[in-house]
């Protein structure tokens, strides 16, 4: 193989560029996405939820969530006048196929979609012994499945019960806030599938996001605020009996 000096001079920079890309590893999935520009959260509007289970099914489809495990699920509360502090809560198969018809009787009913709260001070990431779970710079609590040992310490640490051990992969798994979607400019699968707009993805760092106006003008809570987890899933008009 004869290569002239001219050819070598042309090839060398090309090889350098190629080698640099080899060193850089896998290219970023979304080249225009800057993590420092976002701080993701979710708004859940309880009065809008009809308990159809679309979000649960969409999540299972989008993320290949195995049957019996849930990254998001819907609970139905039934609070009666006699028992305000320990309401009856049901979530048949995570609410995936909807709920049994409730006959009109005493008390009130409402649906509460649950999911990872993507806490800013999350207890689950603090307990990981190997650095397999973490809060990304844009505020999403993620799991590195290649690093996770499956010790399930984080499953115990989550006060919201949002983690599970994947039955086949034997590693911890949870809601990623559809990180593979939101970094491409899409909304999450659950928000995409919600027919009533009860779930809305929100970016707290985006000054034009409607979340800011919503938080100002509505009665919004997070789950278990006493645990100081910095939960970022905001519930509008949530009853005090919700745990």
């Amino acid at each position: 193989m004869n290569i002239s000096r001219r050819q070598i001079l042309i090839l060398l920079p090309a090889a350098a560029v190629a080698w640099k890309s080899v060193l850089a590893g896998t290219p970023e999935a979304s080249p225009n996405y800057r993590m420092s520009d976002h701080w993701w959260s979710m708004l859940i509007d309880i009065p809008k939820c009809i308990g159809c289970g679309n979000c649960v099914r969409a999540c299972q489809t989008e993320n290949d969530v195995p049957d019996g495990s849930f990254r998001t699920w819907v609970e139905r509360y039934h609070v009666t006048d006699e028992n305000m502090i320990s309401p009856q809560v049901i979530s048949p198969d995570g609410g995936k196929e909807g709920f049994p018809v409730a006959q009109e009787d005493a008390g009130k009913y409402f649906f509460v979609p649950k999911m990872c709260n993507h806490c800013a001070d999350s207890p689950c990431t603090q307990v990981c012994p190997v650095g397999a779970t973490f809060i990304s710079p844009d505020g999403v609590v993620l799991i590195d499945p290649k690093y996770c040992l499956g010790c399930a310490y984080c499953v115990q640490a989550c006060p919201y019960g949002c983690r599970y051990i994947h039955p086949e992969k034997k590693v911890a798994d949870k809601c990623t806030l559809c990180y593979h979607r939101i970094t491409k400019g899409l909304t999450t699968a659950c928000c995409e599938a919600c027919p009533t707009g009860a779930r809305q993805l929100a970016d707290l760092k985006n000054p034009n996001d409607p979340i800011h106006e919503f938080l100002k003008t509505h009665s919004v809570q997070v789950l278990k605020p006493q645990m100081a987890t910095g939960a970022k899933v905001f519930y509008n008009d949530m009853d005090g009996s919700v745990r």
């Binding site: 896998t26 290219p27 970023e28 999935a29 979304s30 996405y33 993590m35 969409a58 489809t61 989008e62 990304s136 993620l142 590195d144 290649k146 990623t176 990180y179 593979h180 979607r181 970094t183 491409k184 899409l186 699968a189 995409e192 599938a193």
Partner: peptide, 11 residues
């Protein structure tokens, strides 16, 4: 982070 972001979308 990049690996998670690179997962395929279904919707």
């Amino acid at each position: 982070i990049g690996e998670i972001a690179a997962r395929p979308i279904k919707f």
